[in-house]
Design a protein around this nucleic acid. Sequence first.
RNA 1: GCGAAAGUGGCGGAAUUGGCAGACGCACCAGACUUAGGAUCUGGCGGGUAAAACCGUGGGGGUUCGAGUCCCCCCUUUCGCACCA
Length: 855
Amino acid sequence: MPAQDKPEATTVTRPDRPDDERYDAQRVETKWFERWQQDASLYSAESDSTKKKYYVLEMLPYPSGVLHMGHVRNYAIGDALARYMWMNGYNVLHPMGWDSFGLPAENAAISANVPPREWTLRNIAKMKAQMKRLGFAYDWSREVTTCFPEYYRWNQWFFLKFHEKGLAYRKKSKVNWCPKCTTVLANEQVVNGRCWRHEDTLVEQRELEQWFLRITNYSDELLRDLDKLEHWPEKVRIMQRNWIGRSEGTLVDFKLDGPAGPAGAKISVFTTRVDTIYGATSVQLAPEHPIVADLTSTNSDLRAKVDQLIAEQRKAKEIGDIGEIEKHGVPTGRYAINPFNGEKIPIWVANYILMDYGTGAIMSVPAHDERDYEFAKKYRLEIRLVVLPISNDPEETVAEPPLPFVAHEGVLINSVPFSGLGSADAIKKMSAHAEKHGFGKATVTYRLKDWGISRQRYWGTPIPMLYCEKDGIVPVPEKDLPVILPENIDVTLTGGSPLGRVPEFVNTMCPRCGGPARRETDTMDTFVDSSWYFYRYTDAGNDQAPFDSKTIAYWFPIDQYIGGVEHAILHLIYSRFWTKVMRDLGLIKNDEPVGRLFTQGMVTYQGAAMSKSRGNVVSPDEMIARYGADSARLYVLFAAPPDRDLDWKDTGIEGIQRFLGRVYRFVVRNAQPSHPDRRRPVPAELPPAARAIQRKLHQTIKRVSDDFQGRWHFNTCISAIMELVNVLYGAEEAITQNTIPTPLLAEVQRNLVLLLAPFAPYLAHELWEMLGEKGNLLKAPWPKYDAVLAKEEEIEIPVQVNGKLRGRVIVPADSAEEFVLTRALRDEKVAAAIAGKQIMKKIYVPGKLVNIVVK
RNA sequence: GCGAAAGUGGCGGAAUUGGCAGACGCACCAGACUUAGGAUCUGGCGGGUAAAACCGUGGGGGUUCGAGUCCCCCCUUUCGCACCA
């Protein structure tokens, strides 16, 4: 509207932009938030659907009470994918739940005097409200809350099944104890000798009776099936492979020379290089090896030295660098007999031998092992060469290799009757020999140990076991499940399992003999809860079974699982184990729970992980209040590719807000919801300005669609949409002059909204309505691009001379090589660059570039 | 020590298959509109030069008509593993 048409402008304060063109995120988001609230089944997965299914899952959070930006990023990725799949016609399962057992609730009870259940439920309510406000499309009818008896009774049920199959057992052993958690930890929960929740707290070793799950029965399968997980990040697979730590080798028994103590008369040694056994010049024991106790029982001087070694090992573990420890050892004065050659070799105790790997004893072969070499040098032990490098030339006499010679390919010497054999061959034959003579065998060891699940804490699933004086350990009968976690108990006292102080809980009756029995008072590790929760989503209300097998067959495996890499070992290996056990129980058919895994990067602020103690926490609530949920979501997707770490910048989100404002304004200005032509086909012949818009539109649809299918670089998707919007703004003049046909203008706006829908659902819904569209945008069909329309008619070809850019020519896209080269040579700057020189070669890369090589 | 990933303007990042390095955004600069601008729009924005030339993807070498991209060596950062016998 021309300025002279509004004479009152001098007196009235008037924004340049009418209010209805300004994007008010709060107004729009509140409006849709309220509408979405009213439809509880909006995001429900269909049961008995004939559609193709898509199960997209984000790792369920611990209900700490507040979402952080890492959550927002995780869920924004999943939500975009879920919405994209809905728009592509899939039956999408996109659930959410709460990993709601665990220590923080108990600690809150102690510090704030709020019962754990109350504290937890309050937090869940807060976080759920935040999730809803962020517009995440979850099927809340399937919500799983692990601290509810409806859920944890199935933990107990599974435990009984595991127990029946011999996969749950009780044993006394050294276990990891965190003094701050005042409970036991699984091996997976110990990081560099410290508690995974308390970086500053050293884990102690305690001897306790504990329940274990026999994950080691599945070591091999867990390892083998990693190869099937081709859509998992290589990094995670490597971490799991390392954790399982499979190692092939040979067990060899060395007889103890002289009198034996209670620990026995032989020392079993594990080695991967039995081919070097003729070079063994000592046996080295871990300081905590049981035989060491025998050997030192009459020698207090030696005992003191061994204790010193134990202390050194502990200290090194505490510092977290057992690898750096100075090698130390003491001779015991006793000898062991090498069963291969009958040789007597000295027994030492050394601080670099670990009790928890292999057998806690090794044969020391200084000539062929770096550590043994270092040790032997230090203590002047014999170094005997028994393997030579393979020579390529059989005539050549092989020189002695530099020591230690650790290559795995070699030829045995000094090892009659095995001399002359190659190492690999020798290992097989010598293992067989040991087995035949009863002093050893080929074997496989794993680093993976059974999963200790007992926790001496209150806020967890009670382990459904009883102790009867007469019948011993008795499982709670299935019909008596769930064993309810008592409420209103005082968890503030310390020392022992809190449940042990609740007589009503502890004292019960033995189901076998009717006599008095005591309940198990430990609770389960919370990783039990998260090992199978995603199965429960498929049938969350089932009170007859954990789930329905047929429904699982439809939904599993999970198509896309998204979460932080910090669970690469813990949660993800336990989940795989649980799946395999459930399969063997006949409950499910799939071998693996997760088809595709995506690990998103961390969200940092000022270069560091956000944490309350650092005071660098960016609050999603504050971002929503300032910029709106769409902006916050779009920004976390735009600022970096999702697999990379993202450093939060407040100015960045402002740019996103501006962009959404531009989109909004464009549609407000150009929407023609009741124009009769808006649904008509776009004419085949278009003026150049219109054709440019059409071309850009189809290019953008292609780019965004391709990224969803492929590499998930949502940052570039969003860039592409920004480019489209920039083109539209560039065409504003053409639009006001009516050069852009209405069908095209309507189509480009519809598609723009559709492209934005997975990322910025609030704005997209608002604009969808503004465009006069009646159908639900959530399931509106994803736009298709036309490759022909996306193609440029004319392209600009850069022309290089000797690889340097000298000019450009504009040619029709389908020009022949001949034509392009002719035009290139005719270019002024190019002609100047080759003047007086001889053309050696002319290269034309179709549609890309020309390079003229001259001399 | 072993393994993996990464290193590109002032910043986040793009360049998907060996083919115009710096898309898109932030910051900054200029202009327009304005009583005003922390709104909006338009333009500029690797270094260098009057303009060119020229130089630029951690460093060095190589392959190629052509290298951010492939190969070799080295440096740095992050992550994982770490006396695993």
